[in-house]
């Protein structure tokens, strides 16, 4: 029962969420971008399952298609952060000298980068004609690259601890190479930590994409994203269009599911 609550339910939620996003074309009746201008802010009905937004676009479609963007950005960015963190952390952990100090210093540096401003600056210098997919890739890359430091530091520490263990030293003395040490001794110890970090970073990065888009800096209109859906809610007058808040319960459940799965609450790491 306890396992089901802590693992089964979150996994089930994530699977359903992922399938809904993938099957969006099948599960929706309207394009997320078509404006039914005679029906702005329409209430949920048989025609529009979750109603329409201020421009008369189907909220259900925008929720599912928007989820692809927001979750996609989170997945890509979290994967990038963890991969870079794993690579840098494992290499630094194995090294006792300059490399470790260099990686830790770089991590400190990246933690101090104001990535929001960095993103603004990068966007200003890029060509204007960027498709939503390119913007998504850009967002994910910047968020992911800027966020490697946290997992990187943790993984470095863990790798350094493993590196000091007797069986690793014995293997090294017997002539095991660096790659062998990483593959056979470090990775099995580091992967659970990397997975935990991934699960912790994922909701944060999804929220980062939502926040950036909410403030008009992410994927622009008319492409759907959860941030675009929520953006009109910044004004207190949008009380008649509460269906726009539909990404909120999904986001809250995502954070909870990832938290439960990461084992963070149980204090494993």
């Amino acid at each position: 029962m306890r396992w089901r609550l802590r693992t089964g339910l979150p996994v089930a939620y994530l699977v359903v969420l992922a399938f809904s996003m993938v099957l969006a074309p099948v599960l929706t009746m309207h394009s997320p971008e078509i404006q039914y201008r005679v029906a702005p802010c329409a209430a949920p009905s048989g025609r529009f399952l979750l109603g329409t937004d201020e421009l008369g676009r189907d909220v259900w479609s925008r929720l599912l298609y928007g989820g692809r963007v927001s979750l996609g950005a989170g997945l890509l960015a979290a994967s990038l952060s963890v991969c870079i963190g794993l690579l840098a952390g494992a290499s630094a952990g194995l090294s006792r000298g300059l490399l470790r100090r260099l990686v830790l210093a770089l991590a400190e540096l990246f933690l101090s980068v104001p990535w929001l401003y960095l993103l603004l600056a990068i966007r200003a210098f890029l060509p204007l004609t960027l498709s939503p997919a390119q913007v998504l890739l850009l967002l994910s890359t910047v968020i992911g690259a800027a966020g490697w430091a946290r997992p990187g530091r943790l993984i470095t520490q863990k790798a350094a601890e493993v590196r000091e263990r007797e069986y690793v030293e014995v293997a090294e003395n017997l002539g095991a190479g660096r790659w062998h040490l990483i593959r056979r001794h470090l990775l099995p110890e580091l992967l659970p930590l990397a997975l935990t970090q991934f699960l912790l970073l994922l909701p944060g990065y999804v929220l980062a994409e939502v926040t950036l888009t909410f403030f008009g800096l992410g994927v622009g209109e008319p492409a759907a994203s959860w941030g675009n859906l929520l953006a009109p809610l910044r004004h207190p007058a949008v009380v008649g269009c509460l269906q726009l808040a539909s990404p909120l319960p999904l986001l809250a459940a995502l954070v909870l599911a990832c938290e439960l799965l990461s084992g963070h609450g149980r204090g494993d790491y």
Binding site: E33, L55, G216, G220, E221, R234
Partner: peptide, 14 residues
């Protein structure tokens, strides 16, 4: 990007 009305108008223009 800071003007929500303009963003909506742009979506309608499209």
């Amino acid at each position: 990007s800071s003007n929500q009305q303009r963003a909506q108008m742009a979506a309608m223009l499209q």
